[in-house]
Simulated assay, not measured.
Amino acid sequence: MRATLSSDGVWKPWNKILGMNDHKSNLLWQGAAYPLQGYTITPTKKLSECRNGWVLIFSDYDYGVGSNNFHWVQHRVHKGFLENHSMSGYYFVMQRAMSGLSTAITGKAMDFYDNKIVGGEYNDSDENGSRDVCLRYIYEW
């Protein structure tokens, strides 16, 4: 970890000066959502206001039971990409299961806006395995 002299004259790690280790204040949304087509998630901070963007954290989900605290997957959404491209139809591919012989993957489709995320089609499909994964947290990064 690199150290930097802060404005108060004390040497501190750079991430402490930027507040990037304060996980509670960097948490912008939490829940358990597929998200279904048309379902809207509104983080507490716009993408353009974040230092770099949003981190989406997914976990395992058992249909009809709920979310589980394992099989975590993280994806980053960089704010610079939104400035230069439409974020409609953004796809995430993620692992949903693994054994000694195979790995199962699935995907999620979402539309991104500066102030919200809207779920895409087939995010709760049994056929493509997307029911096995849900969005749990959004953090600033």
Score class of each variant (00 low, 15 high):
K12G: 00
Y34H: 10
T44S: 12
W54S: 00
T4K: 15
R2C: 04
Y34Q: 05
R51W: 02
R2I: 10
D22V: 07
T44C: 01
A3L: 13
G31C: 03
G31H: 05
N26G: 09
V55N: 04
A3Y: 12
K24H: 15
S6M: 03
A33E: 07
S48K: 07
S6C: 14
V55D: 10
L36P: 01
D8T: 04
I17S: 01
P35F: 03
L5I: 08
R51S: 03
A32G: 12
D8F: 02
V10L: 10
M20E: 15
G31V: 02
S25Q: 13
P43D: 05
D8S: 08
W14P: 00
N26T: 09
W11N: 01
T4Q: 14
Y34M: 05
Q30V: 07
L27N: 11
N26L: 15
Q37M: 08
L28C: 13
N15V: 04
N52S: 08
Q30D: 14
A33W: 01
D22W: 06
C50E: 08
K12P: 00
P43E: 04
S48H: 05
Y39T: 14
W14Y: 13
S48W: 05
I17M: 04
L18M: 14
Q30S: 14
L36Y: 11
N21R: 12
G38Q: 01
T44A: 08
T42S: 08
V10C: 03
K16T: 11
N15E: 10
I41K: 03
A32R: 08
W54C: 01
T4F: 12
L5D: 00
K45L: 07
V55R: 09
T40Q: 13
W11Y: 11
H23E: 15
L56R: 02
A33L: 05
G19H: 06
M20K: 14
T4Y: 10
L56C: 05
K16P: 00
M20V: 13
S7P: 02
T44P: 00
Y39A: 15
R51K: 09
P13H: 10
A33D: 03
M20P: 06
W11M: 07
G9Q: 06
Y39N: 09
I41P: 02
P35M: 04
V55A: 05
A33R: 11
L36R: 12
T4C: 11
K45W: 01
P43N: 05
K16W: 13
L5Y: 00
K46E: 07
L36W: 08
M20S: 15
Q37F: 06
Y34K: 02
R51A: 06
S6H: 11
G38M: 00
A32D: 13
K46H: 07
S25I: 07
T4P: 00
N52M: 03
R2H: 11
N15S: 09
L56V: 01
D22Q: 12
K45T: 03
A33H: 06
Q30G: 04
G53R: 03
